[in-house]
């Protein structure tokens, strides 16, 4: 299940990281591709794709820094809400 989630995130991000094979533990901010538009698009994508809402106090760059971290956020959010993704 986690691999599937990571693949969906990677597919979304790949459009913005052309010619770069993004690794699960790679810092997407350090790569320099993330502007404010993509940062918000990423939030919208995670919410829409996995069915939860990111609250104001969950705005933490660590949650979005790597695919692994995003997957962990999804796991926390969906397990708390009892949502299968």
């Amino acid at each position: 299940m986690a691999d599937n989630r990571k693949a969906r995130i990677k597919e979304f991000l790949s459009r913005f990281f052309r010619n770069h094979e993004l690794k699960d533990d790679e810092d997407i901010f350090a790569l320099g591709f993330v502007n404010s538009l993509l940062a918000l698009q990423l939030v919208n994508f995670l919410e829409g794709e996995f069915g939860f809402t990111i609250e104001d106090d969950e705005l933490d760059f660590e949650n979005f820094r790597t695919i692994q971290n995003m997957d962990a956020l999804i796991e926390r959010k969906t397990s708390a809400a009892g949502v299968a993704v």
Partner: peptide, 18 residues
Amino acid sequence: LVGRPGFGLSHVFSTALD
């Protein structure tokens, strides 16, 4: 305070501007 410090432009204002 709206959103967390450091997220004013990237998330709060970006939401408004969108």
